[in-house]
Design a protein around this nucleic acid. Structure first.
Lengths: 246, 246
DNA sequence: ACAAAAGTGTTGGACTTACACCCATGC
DNA sequence: GCATGGGTGTAAGTCCAACACTTTTGT
């Protein structure tokens, strides 16, 4: 019985893959690397790497984040596992995906390990017009969906922003990630009315055009529960209200 | 370089562990088995088993659910991975936990594989007064928290109920899982007002005491998004708003 | 009649939405 | 002055908590 059990147990390698999202050029973008090795050499893929002896998966994810990118990750969130037997041509390799949120960075960061790291619009990946290595299209889709959900009921959106930001910039994050316009006036009020979401710095910023805006930083707790939630009204019901005013 | 990389890759075994929850005797309970083998022989643990060659993790989870329990699982949800290097004394074994919801069953089911399967109140596990094998206390806590969250914004609660149920029984699910009382009148209205949550069967049930109740079955879609969500007001903020208007 | 659970009505407050309107800047 | 984005005010509607009240059974 024991020998049978032992024979039945698969030995696998594990990877931690990173879905690093940011908002650039009014688009939700993900950091991809060009693979330097087989399989899928030359093809785009999510950054990631193998679990090493003595490590746990969060440690692998943080190490790869450091090694492959210059990004400092405030928080990594596990998205899920991907274990289809044939997902890696090298053999049984099971991946656990982690979601990281990065502020808009000056240049497409390139670390030591991955020669060509580049930001790519997630739309091209979700639509399938860009095909990533392995099942990384699927992994990206799962992570993006998770990020969209977390925007609703946590203060995750502030992590897309720089250290200080305006309410308008924060609103752009929601609009880009959700792909829907938001009323600026109501958004403004709602964010300020919610405790611990943002804190005023007291300073102002002069935009290229328009009235100067107050600057804020992320609220006290890193990722707080948000109450009431930021509602994104999706296809809750198919009834379209398309009446207009003069 | 390649040899270095290869040496750094850990080879691990993987398990799928099941957190099977139900509501029994007004308490949230989890199905545990008594381990027949070392390590932790004789100790209580979550049902689960090793990934076999050619399988993916959801397949492992479903197979173990069949083998170790007689429960038919409508839906398994991945909770997360657990990968601390020393979590299994046998060596590197990484576990992915799955959440299953079972209706209140007539007897503590015992399958072929696990001799002693028993329901145990999750409170005893979360409080630490019952210590499970491996890191299964931690896994249980993560799964219970996930279940609590999903009650808020999905119709998961109906899966705790039998094929047909009363609104009062559904309310008990929420009260037990969340550990808070709910106003029966408001709950009644809210559930019936939400589309696709429950469907009337047209039949009635006579309880031991009180007025007969209409029977319902789970709504069309298996696990629908719920809008508006069932809100559980936790410790949102301790500040009382005691100003009033004229 | 009484207890107990099912179910309906109603009211005040909280939150959302839509939009009118004012503010402060660069050009 | 005018365009542009920041920010405030307000009224209509929706949703929710609280609770009075009625209904229908078993004892």
């Amino acid at each position: 019985m024991t020998s049978t059990e032992t024979r039945e147990r698969a030995l696998v390698q594990m990877t931690a893959d990173l879905v690093i999202l940011t908002v650039r050029d009014e688009r939700l973008q993900v950091l991809l690397i060009e693979r330097g090795n087989e399989p899928f050499r030359g093809q785009l893929a999510l950054p990631g790497g193998f679990l090493r002896p003595g490590e746990d998966l969060p440690a692998t994810a943080h190490r790869e984040l450091r090694e492959e990118t210059q990004i400092d990750a405030p928080h990594l969130e596990e998205v899920g596992s991907f274990s289809k037997p044939d997902r890696d041509p090298r053999g049984p390799v099971i991946s656990v995906a982690f979601l990281a949120i990065a502020p808009n960075l000056p240049a497409p960061v390139a670390g030591t390990d991955a020669a060509g790291a580049r930001w790519t619009s997630v739309e091209e990946i979700l639509s399938g017009s860009v095909r990533l290595a392995f099942d990384h299209n699927e992994i990206t889709a799962a992570a993006v969906e998770r990020a969209r959900e977390k925007l609703e009921y946590t203060t995750l959106a502030t992590q897309f922003c720089a250290k200080t930001f305006t309410i308008g910039e924060l609103r752009t994050v929601y609009e880009v990630v959700w792909g829907t316009p938001i009323d600026p006036r109501n958004f403004h009020r709602k964010v300020l009315k919610t405790k611990h979401f943002v804190e005023p710095t007291g300073e102002m910023r002069n935009p290229p055009v328009g009235r100067p805006a107050k600057l804020f930083r992320a609220g006290s707790a890193e990722i707080t529960q948000l109450y009431p939630a930021m509602l994104r009204r999706d296809e809750v019901d198919g009834s379209a209200t398309d009446d207009q005013a003069p």
